[in-house]
Design a binder for these strands. Structure first.
Lengths: 234, 234
DNA sequence: CGAAAGGTTGAGTGCTGTCAACGTCCGTGG
DNA sequence: CCACGGACGTTGACAGCACTCAACCTTTCG
């Protein structure tokens, strides 16, 4: 009855270093949950009552202002962890961008389990440190880059994460499907949808990218993108 | 000879839960180091060879672009931890803003010690989660707030961190010394020094703040600042 | 006292946001 | 099958906020 052993993120999630007995104990306090695209599972400012591993799907972390302005502060993929252990309230809203499958734990039980299982805490620490590096890196983009630089950086990062490299006949050409619409791209980059749209059009007209349909991007001239991104250590 | 027991951040740093014996073991791999204002101790892109506790002083974490644009992605105070454990390279430069006193460890030794001392790793995890929340909160400011909103948010945050509340005759009036110059304020907020200077002048002319000298700020009308900051959950 | 560093202020430009119209894609229902 | 409507995306005109460039002021320190 131990579903964990068959879990698709078994080797990458924070539980990956646990042995069979520990896994079973953890399994007892958690449960699987399905989340539909668009649904939120954690709300900014609310009490932090649950944490979870992402088994499948993509989710976004957002913070927002009273007047509706919103900033996406993180994108969460399978094997990532969501929620705020050891803290009273959540600072971000977590919303599914696609249908998603989660492995959910009540925060209090998880906290207790984590404190007595150093191997799990170590994995969680490692993931958190990586997320902190990523967040701080993104701050440079938000605070200091121009719209063209933001777009180029975004496309390169998406390509690294999502590109199906195996299918490319021409190694310079990579194609991938962006898992979000224009408004979400704008909320990631700190721009408006109009500016995002204009940047897409400009890059298409310049032959740097192609846009076969509204969600997919083909990078035709990666070198130009790298140049436009002003990469600090390229 | 155990200096740790007399350490001024003994109760707040990541070593605070260790017992005397563990503390002594940790002490063996670390050493105290003095850093002068302006000196860097960790460099962006370089191998991450050391980590440290901050005993005294203020430091900044920065990331930058080739052309010199820079973003401050974190401010570090006494009892905070710097460096990247369990990782090969650092993504930020760490530079002292004042003369500072550090408790430095070689990263490899620290990693090893941490892995075998869950209490220390737990403290580090807690601090890292808090920093991640703070970083993500700041992303909203960088990506979505206007210059007046950024300034107001900045002044309120500084006031929370630094204000000497005990000395205030009028509870609404708080005064504090900003530990950095205009360029650094600009690099925190993702603005230019000219814009920062203009915002200071505007707030002074409107009677919201007073600027007795270039580094100190008195908040005269906190309510107006809160309104200008567009606080999401005030 | 002079020079250098840091800070302020002004004039002008341009990038990005705002507002608005239009186009495209799709699902729904007549 | 087509008409309709709504969500999403694109494009244009325009405005304004923040940046750039430059001059000047203030403070600090040798």
């Amino acid at each position: 009855m131990n579903q964990c052993s068959a879990c698709v993120v078994r080797n990458r999630a924070i539980c990956s270093d646990l042995d069979a007995r520990e896994l079973q104990a953890l399994n007892k306090i958690g449960r699987q949950a399905k989340v539909e695209s668009g649904q939120s599972v954690i709300w900014e400012g609310e009490d932090s009552l649950l944490v979870a591993n992402v088994i499948d799907g993509v989710l976004k972390l957002t913070t927002s202002l009273d007047d509706g302005r919103q900033q996406i502060v993180g994108i969460v993929y399978p094997s990532d962890f969501i929620g705020r252990p050891f803290g009273q309230k959540s600072f971000q809203t977590v919303t599914a961008l696609t249908d998603a499958q989660l492995c959910v734990f009540p925060r209090a039980s998880f906290d207790e389990f984590a404190k007595s299982h150093p191997k799990l805490e170590h994995k969680l620490l490692d993931k958190t440190l990586t997320e902190l590096d990523r967040a701080r890196d993104w701050m440079l983009l938000l605070g200091r880059k121009t719209a063209p630089e933001k777009m180029a950086s975004f496309l390169l990062e998406m390509s690294d994460r999502l590109a199906d490299k195996s299918c490319a006949d021409n190694p310079a050409t990579t194609s991938f499907e962006i898992p979000f619409g224009r408004q979400q791209v704008a909320d990631i980059l700190g721009l408006t949808i109009e500016t995002v749209s204009r940047q897409f059009s400009r890059l298409r007209k310049q032959g740097v990218i192609d846009l076969p349909d509204r969600r997919t991007v083909s990078i035709l001239d990666r070198e130009t993108l790298v140049r436009e991104a002003e990469l600090q250590s390229a």
